[in-house]
Nucleic acid binder design. Sequence first.
DNA 1: GGAAAGCGTTGGGCGACCCAACGTTGTGAG
DNA 2: CTCACAACGTTGGGTCGCCCAACGCTTTCC
Lengths: 152, 152
Amino acid sequence: MGDAHEDLQPPARLRALTSWQAHKVSTVGARMTARHMPLTARSDFAVLAALEEYGPLSQADLGRRLGLDRNDVSGIVTRLHTGGHVDREANPEDRRRNLVTVNKTGLRYLDEIQRNADKAQAELLSGLDANERRQLHALLAKALEAHRGEPA
Amino acid sequence: MGDAHEDLQPPARLRALTSWQAHKVSTVGARMTARHMPLTARSDFAVLAALEEYGPLSQADLGRRLGLDRNDVSGIVTRLHTGGHVDREANPEDRRRNLVTVNKTGLRYLDEIQRNADKAQAELLSGLDANERRQLHALLAKALEAHRGEPA
DNA sequence: GGAAAGCGTTGGGCGACCCAACGTTGTGAG
DNA sequence: CTCACAACGTTGGGTCGCCCAACGCTTTCC
């Protein structure tokens, strides 16, 4: 007799769309993330990770690297600079560009975000075992490969 | 020699996050979708698909089914109703609820969106063969399973 | 009968994406 | 050398999705 709280499955046409699945996974991920840190930390993480791995970059390069618009990069860098995580100075060799650099505070912040992101990730993927997680990761990476350097 | 357009890979820390990958796949999917139809068609598709599969529903049920907020369902249903795709009438057995029903126009619209969604999907997954697509789909479904009926 | 809960609606905030414009600065062609 | 062109960073704006809060109405449950 009546399951108290019927199953409430989404319609088949929706479940069939990989794009919709990815969207759902993404927003569930955002929810898990929000339980550990403010959502803005996600863009902070992206920028700081890029600066840590590739060294000082201009904002335009950051945008290309991360697939973000110059506009939005501007805001993120301003936020990071205000928070003391990043130094921003004019590039003497090309005064159009800003040279953005992570400092020690920023690196500590980066590691903190990393820890929280790992927690959120574990919660998000709680339904998959280690093998499945690796497969999912590989398949997503391959799907993205086909679209590298597409817009900005 | 310099490769003319350096590779511009995102940082490893980012690539390692499944949540970030899913987000990227989702927004690339949105971009592909936008090449075939207005983006609002995505929510239209969700609502129409639910109504087609489960019959007339209240807006609250729609929200639960699709994982959307009542607030947003309200706007979507209004848009669909204005466009003539959906009938909305008070449920005589419970006058709090609206009974939302797809009509013939709505079903034609649904099929049109389906065709465009399929095109977008094909472009999105162009890097994967049929097997990989099935695997990706199954893994995403399994990951989502663990989070069913979570918020609203 | 009255409190509690559910419904649909409105208004608002936030993050991410994207477009357009501006002033500044470098580049390259004539 | 000059002048058109391109790239950079910034600002302002628009959209879409998610989420919270409040309201008035209706139903349900004690």
